[in-house]
């Protein structure tokens, strides 16, 4: 994977006295499909909006494709964005949206979008307000992709879709990534979908970054340890992300530091990415309650 396409340092957003996003440090490598996960209100939408220049950060810096996000053509032309509610002009049909894209973007691939919608059998002449949710999402995705962006930011694009439409949407997205030159950041609650489509993960909880790394690295560096309750583990080598105890047994999800070995007396299991993500979200919640 390539150099960082997104790099943030201490990024924060305050609404009144409430920090929706605080001290957010992430780095997204070029060519990756990054999953942005976290509970509701964790600041996912806020982060994406700041990155695309729709909202202004209250603190810190963000660099996207080497530039500070701004409402300018030179910045916007390389970025595609799909908002949570999948906004489209309801009274206009898909053909109008294609024309809109062509008029509002210098580098817009009309033929690509026409072909995509034709392949998906989406009628071009019907107002998009009358299309199904899945079709609307596909029109919006095609519109964002036809812009030929280098970075695509998607805010819970599949949340409102049925499983089939979801599969089709993710398949369209994967195809676009396969064509190369595209980095994707996609927020979602559907961890199972993310695992197959993504290769990078950002966990945001309580307004802060909990985890930001490649999924493979995350899987390698996290272990599920099961052992007798009284067993101690060397804290220098492990960070305990999540622990559960019964009277006799402890189950720990730990982050292995470099070169750490699992101590004797502990049974070692491989957690899946879903378990790891949930553990980080749980940790943030406990931290927030303390």
């Amino acid at each position: 994977m390539g150099a960082a396409v997104i790099q943030t340092k201490g990024l924060g957003k305050r609404y009144g006295s409430f920090w929706a996003l605080e001290n957010c440090n992430i780095s997204v490598p070029a060519g990756s499909v990054s999953a942005l996960v976290g509970p509701n209100g964790a600041g996912k939408s806020t982060l994406l909006k700041i990155l695309v220049g729709l909202n202004r950060a209250s603190a810190g810096q963000g660099e996207v494709l080497g530039k500070a996000p701004a409402q300018e053509e030179s910045f916007l032309s390389d970025i595609g964005y799909l908002a949570q509610e999948i906004p489209l002009y309801k009274n206009l049909n898909a053909a109008d949206h294609i024309k809109m894209g062509a008029h509002l973007n210098k580098r817009f691939d009309k033929e690509f979008m026409q072909k995509r919608l034709k392949d998906l059998q989406i009628p071009l002449d019907r107002p998009v307000g009358k299309l199904s949710g899945g079709q609307r999402a596909q029109v919006a995705l095609a519109l964002a992709l036809a812009k030929k962006p280098k970075l695509l930011l998607l805010d819970e694009p599949v949340a409102a879709l049925d499983p089939l439409a979801r599969h089709d949407f993710l398949s369209s997205l994967a195809q676009a990534v396969a064509d190369g030159g595209l980095t994707v950041v996609m927020s979602s609650h559907l961890l199972a979908d993310l695992e197959r489509v993504s290769d990078h993960v950002i966990v945001l909880a309580a307004g802060k970054t909990q985890l930001c790394d490649e999924i493979e690295t995350v899987l390698n560096e996290h272990k599920l340890l099961v052992g007798p309750r009284q067993n101690k583990i060397p804290e220098d080598d492990f960070a305990i992300i999540h622990e559960t105890h019964t009277i006799r047994q402890s189950t720990l999800l730990v982050h292995l530091k470099k070169g750490a070995k699992v101590p004797n007396g502990w049974q070692q299991h491989e957690p899946n990415i879903e378990e790891i993500i949930l553990a980080y979200m749980g940790q943030a919640k406990e931290g927030g309650e303390k």
Partner: peptide, 17 residues
């Protein structure tokens, strides 16, 4: 209200224009 501002503002046209 319909969120189409965020669609328009993420095409390659500045908000001012």
């Amino acid at each position: 209200g319909e969120g189409t501002n965020s669609l328009a503002w993420t095409q390659s046209v500045s908000r001012r224009k």
